[in-house]
Design a protein around this nucleic acid. Sequence first.
DNA 1: ACCAGATATTGAACAATGTTCAATTTAGTG
DNA 2: CACTAAATTGAACATTGTTCAATATCTGGT
Lengths: 201, 201
Amino acid sequence: MARRSDHSRDEIHQLALAAAEALIDEGGLQALSARKVASRIGYTVGTLYMVFKNLDDLILQVNGRTLDLLHQRLQGRLSERIGGKDELMQLAAAYIEFAQTETPRWGMLFEYIVDDDGELPGWYQEKLGRVFGPVEQALQATLPACASDKVRQASRVLWASVHGICMLKIRQRLNLAGGQTTRQMVEMLVDNFLVGMGCKE
Amino acid sequence: MARRSDHSRDEIHQLALAAAEALIDEGGLQALSARKVASRIGYTVGTLYMVFKNLDDLILQVNGRTLDLLHQRLQGRLSERIGGKDELMQLAAAYIEFAQTETPRWGMLFEYIVDDDGELPGWYQEKLGRVFGPVEQALQATLPACASDKVRQASRVLWASVHGICMLKIRQRLNLAGGQTTRQMVEMLVDNFLVGMGCKE
DNA sequence: ACCAGATATTGAACAATGTTCAATTTAGTG
DNA sequence: CACTAAATTGAACATTGTTCAATATCTGGT
């Protein structure tokens, strides 16, 4: 029996999240189970339910950490405020890379489905909003004359589009894409989108 | 016990698919189970496995029918060859409507995940390709001067983008989208994309 | 009409799942 | 050392996908 003082509640919490992430990386969402997570951290099932409401709660928290990581990766490509297509393509490349490198965790962000009227918890929505930050910044720098709420909206449209391409490409739902890479497809999108937004270059 | 001659193999096949669709419509993918499908059509579990390899096989075939239905809905908006932004927006509206109306079945199209190297079966890829048909046609009509393989590629990029917007909107992953409707976001995309492709209007 | 071979159908069995909770073990306090 | 409060366990339950021996039903031949 695990000693009561081996880990604090919070340590168990963190250990479990890390173990869950490892399992997901190894075998996708279907490789995740309460008992497997528990045994990996040296506890039994019951203990998990002292720290998480249920498995969905655990998954949502893993997703929260994934969003944080994604935000970091995007922010990392934003070191210098260049603006323009190049910076947006840097961000897009970072997103593509993240999706390709951390495919299972990235995919899980969109598999957890919320009920009709049920909303995602506030802390989660906040993390979601943060992910759009770098895109919004780069887009504003690219379109200095554009009103900030229009940029806000445009960044959502553009990024949802980048995401759509990534998604269908990685999940192989784009039959006969003519040998284009994900990156080339995204470049076509960004090019056209920026021209449409009235970008000079 | 169900009489041996009550239904042919093929009838059982069809009945099961219809029952599965009903279950999914009522409660999403998680409401689907082998026993529920079987009991709805008046048989027991074992019988299902005479007609489907396993549950994934059943799901893939449901998805096949969903793709057919989607293709119909798109094709239905293509009756007259107008070309131009209006026709593309008609198609986009049809897609949005489909996603909003048949959300569970539509969502399932992207939840079934294929292994790393494992490909989707040929018949399924063919159905996938067909869905892009109407978009390709409308885009070619809109850009008559554009080479057909460029149109082919552009239709994939554009439609993956439309899909991305739909997806994130319906799954509520677009925090603070500023009260824009899915349709308005898609319109912004289509507008910009067409300008970028050199469309006059 | 009846039998035999073939095939359809059943339902029990198995391992694994999420979740709960009484019983047990441990830690801290007086 | 004893008592209380909390942590930890593991058995229990319902449900899941899948398999397969047993049983029921049909078909064709005599």
